[in-house]
């Protein structure tokens, strides 16, 4: 199960117009620094629902996706299953 987790992001706006996300502010006490952006593509999130730019990123040694839809950033948050 996944949840659409809206997050705030610190990003750098490059002179080319490209928006480079740098830090994901996941919660009040949890920031994730993005170590690498592998790609940025137009993509739908079928897991949590949304259409926008999908950044394929690495945080530490983990790969994940960060989405930008209109001007809202979100991630696909894994939910604990009750079963």
């Amino acid at each position: 199960m996944f949840n659409k987790k809206i997050v705030s992001v610190t990003a750098k706006f490059l002179t080319t117009g490209y928006i480079m996300p740098l830090i994901i502010h996941y919660s009040d006490d949890k920031d994730y620094f993005i170590d690498k952006v592998y790609s940025c593509k137009n993509c739908a999130s079928l897991k949590v629902g949304g259409i926008g730019k999908r950044y394929d990123i690495r945080i530490g040694n983990k790969r994940t996706f960060l989405y930008l839809e209109d001007s809202i950033w979100f991630v696909e948050e894994k939910m604990e299953s009750n079963n």
């Binding site: 593509k41 137009n42 993509c43 739908a44 999130s45 079928l46 259409i51």
Partner: peptide, 11 residues
């Protein structure tokens, strides 16, 4: 085009 719409828009 069909495949792009699936990937990029999810429809």
């Amino acid at each position: 085009i069909r495949k792009r719409i699936i990937t990029e828009v999810g429809l």
